[in-house]
């Protein structure tokens, strides 16, 4: 197990370097950011030259990357054009996104698995059919449509929940964006759970458990659900990273100053420090989530062993 984890961690290094370099190149392919600082006006050449020198923009690209990575290992992510350190942005943005992701993840897990369990146990019933239709609708509508529609109806028209989250973030204000962010994944979780529950309910061990005279509650929760959750946990693990990425759209709609906000602003203002810094952390989150999922397999299914 320990050697396996070590090997996985070592594999992360080339992945990490590769992705950061790609992002770095892509941001630079957008062109010289200094002109945009001057708006519709022509920049003063002397001042523009000074700013280029400050951000190493006169160096060849590979040297800029080496300098950037050198600073990164000293935990210096560089500065934005507004003079803030990217580390301070990370410190404000990630907690916000994490809160949103946590709310969405909770909704996804609780409702996704319950819906899936109910429809899996009562196949062909009214509950099953309505869950099927509902998930079909949710999957086929893009997140930003659900976002704006729910914001208008719940937030503006009926005034049940706050229309935007703002500052400070409260659980109440994160409920609506959480539902929007969770909706698509929730539908997948429900369908996945339904399929595996339906499959496993005919398995021998369930019949044995029922024959033993165990109460139905214990059969369903301890035997059926536990074995049905293995593929669901895989999905949830990878989805945790996807949720943080998907928060980009949701955060903009509901004015949450998280990763999505800073990434968007960084791209629009072509600040490579911000973009690369935020993506770097996102990459680490993805890698860690994947590793965690693989380790969870062994916990859920004793037959799986890592050498």
């Amino acid at each position: 197990m320990g050697r396996y984890v070590l090997r996985r961690l070592l594999q992360m290094i080339p992945v990490f370097i590769g992705t950061t370099f790609l992002i770095f190149v892509m941001v630079h392919a957008l062109g010289d950011p200094v002109n945009a600082l001057f708006g519709d006006k022509a920049p003063d050449p002397a001042v523009a030259a000074q700013i280029r020198a400050q951000y190493n923009l006169n160096d060849p690209l590979w040297l800029q990357y080496v300098k950037y990575m050198g600073n990164l290992f000293r935990w210096d992510f560089g500065n934005t054009f507004s003079g803030q350190t990217v580390t301070s942005l990370l410190a404000t943005a990630y907690p916000a996104t994490l809160k949103l992701t946590a709310v969405a993840f909770t909704i996804e897990v609780v409702f996704g698995i319950s819906f899936g369990l109910i429809s899996g146990l009562r196949r062909g019933g009214v509950a099953d059919n309505s869950v099927l239709i509902l998930t079909l609708v949710v999957i086929s509508i893009p997140t930003f449509v659900t976002g704006y529609v729910l914001q208008y109806l719940v937030g503006v028209k009926w005034g049940i929940l706050p229309a935007t989250a703002g500052d400070p973030l409260t659980l109440q204000s994160l409920l609506l964006p959480g539902i929007v962010l969770a909706s698509v994944s929730l539908a997948y979780v429900a369908r996945l759970t339904r399929t595996t529950v339906a499959e496993n309910s005919k398995a021998d061990y369930v019949r044995t458990a029922t024959a033993k005279g165990l109460p139905r509650r214990r059969v369903v929760i301890n035997h059926l659900l536990r074995n049905s959750l293995i593929p669901v946990v895989t999905f949830l693990g990878t989805d945790l990273g996807a949720l943080m990425g998907g928060a980009l759209v949701t955060e903009r709609i509901f004015n949450i100053h998280g990763v999505g906000f800073y990434l968007y602003q960084g791209i629009v203002r072509q600040n490579s420090n911000t973009v690369v810094g935020f993506v770097t952390i996102l990459v680490i989150v993805f890698l860690a989530a994947n590793l965690l999922v693989d380790l969870l397999y062994a916990v859920l299914d004793p037959r799986i062993r890592y050498a």
Partner: peptide, 30 residues
């Protein structure tokens, strides 16, 4: 094994609740 499985699910959801829990305490006049 059964306990371990339940732990995995509970851990995932309760982590979520803990993270958001910190936020709901500061909802004075937002």
């Amino acid at each position: 094994a059964a306990t371990r499985a339940r732990w995995a699910v509970i851990a995932a959801t309760s982590l979520a609740l803990v993270v958001t829990g910190c936020s709901s305490s500061s909802n004075s006049s937002s």
